[in-house]
């Protein structure tokens, strides 16, 4: 194996390990019902990664990563925490932008209010505009 091939393979492995650790750590937080339990679980997880820190053989490393990923997938939380605004979160799309198109404008003049339909091409649709109230 040439040096370049070796280095690219090692770089790919390092990235896989970082992403696996990140996902596993988040999953640990999902499983832990209290923060103080999470700290212990996180340190156990960290030890499991540290244990294989000095493995040199590339194929063994691949095998260890594959084992780790399999273990992560097996114990993945069925209902993980999702940040509210993210897809799947409790506030996802709660206040969607209004549809584009025509809208009703409320015009407030001197002592009168009237409404008019306004054709609106493109841009942000504004459902109600207060005009002239200053």
């Amino acid at each position: 194996m040439s040096l370049t091939t070796y280095l690219t393979r090692r770089a790919a492995q390092k990235e896989r390990v970082r992403i696996l650790y990140r996902r596993a750590l988040k999953d640990t937080l999902n499983w832990a019902v209290h923060r103080h339990l999470f700290y212990d679980d996180a340190s156990i997880l960290r030890d499991r990664f540290e244990k294989n820190k000095h493995v040199e053989d590339v194929d063994t490393i691949d095998q260890l990563i594959a084992d780790g990923e399999a273990s992560y997938n097996k114990w993945r939380h069925p209902d993980p925490y999702i940040v509210p605004w993210a897809p799947g979160g409790s506030k996802f799309n709660r206040n969607p932008t209004p549809p584009q198109g025509s809208y009703t404008r409320m015009v407030i003049g001197k002592g009168i209010i009237h409404f008019e339909r306004v054709k609106h091409k493109g841009g942000v649709g504004i459902p109600l505009i207060l005009e002239g109230c200053l």
Partner: peptide, 13 residues
């Protein structure tokens, strides 16, 4: 709506 006339009080902006 076009002929509606409602007296208004301007609220402070």
């Amino acid at each position: 709506l076009r002929h509606l006339r409602v007296p208004i009080q301007t609220a402070p902006w």
